[in-house]
């Protein structure tokens, strides 16, 4: 068996090598596919903090993915139409600057995660799943009815947003941006899991009574994890919208929430690179099997069954074995 740390390194090197190969062989679509996988991975790394570390089975993470997407869509739409987002009580202009859009996406999805978390964390188990799902669907139907931003048809952004010093229209440049963010977030996730916060959160998932009796509040720990998780998934949403130059209510759909969760289950719950492996496998299946049949989800379902029955630690667990308790 390979050590998990080695496997993580290999996964990231491969994920970087494929688009580099594609760039030298003039295969821009492969770079776009790799970028899609990286962004999905980022969204799932976000969920993995709530689900893997905190044990919070959120079926509403598409809410944050969509909020990030719409943050990008709305700001870029106003920038391209030269209209302000709002004039009263103060003027807010649109923008094409990626860093500003990311900041707005992270803050808005963080606020949403805080509010959803405060209410949802009053419940547990299946009720938590249902409440998060309900919040996701509320955002979904709200976006459908939001005619000012395209309603059901969504919003088209003509040109990809700007990043200082880089031409983001070049596929490899946009991939580099997304890949760098993914690596930074993975680093953050790794540090978080080993920090006092990660230790307490992990214990709150396993033995909340114990956490209380050492004077720590398990609910507060879970809420903070849920917010961090929402912020990261929101950032992924903004990048996804920029990749497609399009946002639509689909980003809020419960299928999207399900897919983010599938990335984690496929790759390995609570494993650092589990979501990355899951997202890559998903995008590959979507591309290769989707080309053969529009019913490719049947094969995805079969793979998911195999993983759930025979590889509880996901594909990462299958290759790297049982997780070594923090070494």
């Amino acid at each position: 068996m390979i050590r998990e740390r080695t496997l993580n390194g290999l996964v990231l090197v491969l994920l970087l090598a494929v688009p580099l190969w594609a760039m030298f062989n003039d295969q821009p679509f492969t770079i776009t596919l790799a970028t899609r996988a990286v962004i999905f991975a980022l969204a799932a790394v976000g969920l993995n903090i709530a689900l893997g570390l905190g044990g919070l089975v959120s079926l509403g993470h598409a809410a944050f993915f969509g909020i990030g997407g719409y943050a990008m869509g709305i700001l870029a739409h106003h920038a391209q139409t030269y209209t302000p987002v709002m004039e009263l009580p103060f003027l807010i202009e649109g923008t094409k600057s990626m860093p500003v859009i990311w900041l707005v996406a992270m803050v808005t999805s963080g606020i949403a995660a805080f509010l959803i978390g405060i209410l949802s964390l009053r419940t547990a188990g299946v009720y938590f799943i249902m409440i998060t799902l309900a919040f996701g669907q509320m955002f979904y139907f709200f976006s459908i009815s939001w005619a000012a931003y395209g309603g059901e048809d969504g919003l088209l952004i003509y040109v990809r947003n700007d990043f200082p010093g880089l031409n983001t229209l070049v596929p490899i440049n946009f991939f580099a941006i997304c890949f760098t963010i993914l690596c930074l977030v993975l680093l953050l996730n790794g540090l978080l899991a080993r920090s006092p916060f990660g230790l307490a959160l992990n214990a709150a998932r396993q033995a909340p009574q114990r956490v209380q009796t050492v004077g720590l509040d398990p609910q507060r720990l879970k809420l903070v994890a849920f917010v961090i998780s929402g912020v990261i998934t929101g950032l992924a949403g903004a990048l996804f919208a920029d990749l497609n130059r399009f946002v639509s209510p689909t980003m809020f759909s419960w299928q999207m929430s399900g897919e983010i969760m599938i990335f984690i289950i496929l790759g390995g719950n609570a494993r650092l690179c589990g979501p990355v492996v899951g997202a890559v496998v998903f995008v590959m299946l979507e591309h290769f099997l989707g080309g053969l049949s529009e019913y490719w989800h049947i094969y995805l379902g079969a793979l998911l069954l195999l993983v759930v029955f025979f590889a509880r630690g996901g594909l990462v667990g299958l290759i790297a074995g049982r997780e070594v308790a923090h070494d």
Binding site: L188, R194, L199, G215
Partner: peptide
């Protein structure tokens, strides 16, 4: 270590490995 973290009264340290 969880008890020790409880003793210092703050789990809000995010980046330094425990």
């Amino acid at each position: 270590l969880l008890g020790a973290v409880g003793d210092i009264g703050s789990p809000w340290r995010f980046l330094r490995p425990v």
